[in-house]
Design a binder for these strands. Structure first.
Lengths: 148, 148
DNA sequence: TATTGTTATACTCTATAACTATA
DNA sequence: TATAGTTATAGAGTATAACAATA
């Protein structure tokens, strides 16, 4: 499924091949994340939200920014996760309009388990490379991410 | 947002770093695809479906396999895309149960435009690498994809 | 007035279960 | 009986618009 295929200039062939590899890799990776999420009744978005909240409490508006979603969407996501006991809304004593979201113990545990399982599911792929190759690949990806 | 972070054995640090880079790269890539899809009122799934059908006609069941979705989901996706004039259902003369899906001219054009735009949107990222680096990165990604 | 969230609404995506038609 | 699709249904994810409360 060559998602992309259009540029056929001499110098652009390498770039085109890279983009195809990038897109295919991304679909494989997202499929792994989606599957692990599903095993815990979490959508990809819920999984991302837990990952964000693992490091820090966040305001509703900050979650909307991080996830690139409308604030009304966040209300629904947080509603459902809160109903499951994965997180809690907390009032901000300084600003009465603001609502902060914090993981519960259960949410923290689930996020940790998810992270472990993701690493486990991707490792068969990453382990096809030796350490030097892993290093090179990581460096190249990070270089690209910086310039994004 | 370190999606993954759990293994801290000496040899696993490189792998962990790679997995993080892989996941972050995937989210960036999927965000680009989602955005370009949205600009054409296409969900990521619809965009993938068009990409698949760009190369070949496909049975409903084949689409379900490619996309990893239930056949009932495919019925809905095809319904909506057909209503928009992007594709058509066609009867299979050999097997009366089977339904084949083919892009219309409009669907083909949209798929081509999408591919071009995806390449254009990802190129600022990929262009931060020189040709040799692109080559190396592509090779490493493809190596991993083979073993998936 | 501007900002932060919630709610009402509508549509897409998704799966499960029950169904129809064909093999 | 088994297979290929469709339909009915239900729930999650999403955005827009209107709203309430606070600043």
């Amino acid at each position: 499924m060559p998602f992309t295929e259009s540029a056929t200039q001499p110098a652009q062939l390498d770039q085109q091949a890279l983009i195809d590899a990038l897109v295919r890799t991304s679909f494989v990776t997202m499929a792994v994340l989606t599957k692990i999420g599903a095993e815990h009744d979490l959508s990809l978005t819920q999984l991302r939200m837990l990952a964000i909240l693992r490091d820090r409490r966040a305001k509703m508006s900050a979650l909307a920014d991080y996830l690139g979603l409308d604030k009304s969407t966040i209300s629904g996501l947080v509603d459902r996760a809160e109903k499951r006991g994965l997180l809690q809304r907390e009032a901000n004593p300084v600003d009465g309009r603001s609502v902060e979201v914090v993981l519960t113990r259960e949410g923290t545990e689930l996020a940790a388990r998810g992270a472990t399982e993701i690493a486990g599911s991707l490792s068969p792929m990453t382990n096809t490379l030796n350490r030097a190759e892993m290093h090179r690949l990581t460096t190249l990806l990070e270089r690209m991410l910086e310039h994004h």
